[in-house]
Design a protein around this nucleic acid. Structure first.
Lengths: 103, 103
DNA sequence: CCCTATGGTTTACACTGCAAACCGGTATGG
DNA sequence: CCATACCGGTTTGCAGTGTAAACCATAGGG
């Protein structure tokens, strides 16, 4: 159990680490695109939370949020940016390293 | 990629999930006992933070904090309680499940 | 004495996640 | 028509939390 691992734990990207956002990113990581209502169902977040977290992920450049109309209804569709994908994969690496070294 | 996994992500124990505390718990998980200064060095936290987080872990019943004097110097020694160990192991399970299903 | 070090604790604050309230539009019922 | 309810979100208010800086008691050195 290397000492440096413990210090490394704290270097995690908190933007990804937050459970609500981790759920959103995990969904997006597997699907190319997803709209607001789909994310709502899959993550189980409330609308307010989902909206706020998406805004934060967008501000960070991790997610691209596109608003359009589908017929007469507003529709918000999201996808991971390359940086978002990269950040998520870094997080996955962090996860695995922990799982390997602590478990 | 089961849908329920995404909901499960958000069920994580935030007390353990917090990086600073995760580092503390990870150290304690491997050592029977550790004193304040040892935790300070291994985790890289500041004294204030370490103190605050230990208090929180103690309040949660995850860590037992014993204060004594070593010669003339105060010495704070910590160890995981059974519930703390259990909570940490639950977290590890969560970690591994994520690593397996997302990676 | 005064100054510094040790081993912490307390304080102050800025940030953040959350749900409830809200909002502009659209379909619907009377 | 008028209102009323719904849809797809966004904004607001607040409580909780992580952080570093300031603080504190005691000990030791010059």
């Amino acid at each position: 159990m290397a000492e440096e691992l413990f210090q490394e734990i704290r270097q995690v990207d908190r933007l990804v680490h937050e459970p609500a956002r981790l759920a959103i990113l995990a969904v997006l990581y597997g699907v190319e695109e997803a709209d607001f209502l789909y994310l709502l169902r899959t993550t189980g977040l409330t609308k307010g939370n989902l909206s706020a977290h998406l805004a934060k992920l967008e501000a960070a450049g991790y997610v691209e949020v596109r608003k359009r109309f589908l017929g007469k209804k507003p529709n918000t569709v999201c996808r991971l940016t390359p940086e978002g994908r990269q950040a998520f994969e870094r997080y996955l690496t962090w996860l695995k390293r922990l799982a390997r070294n602590l478990g």
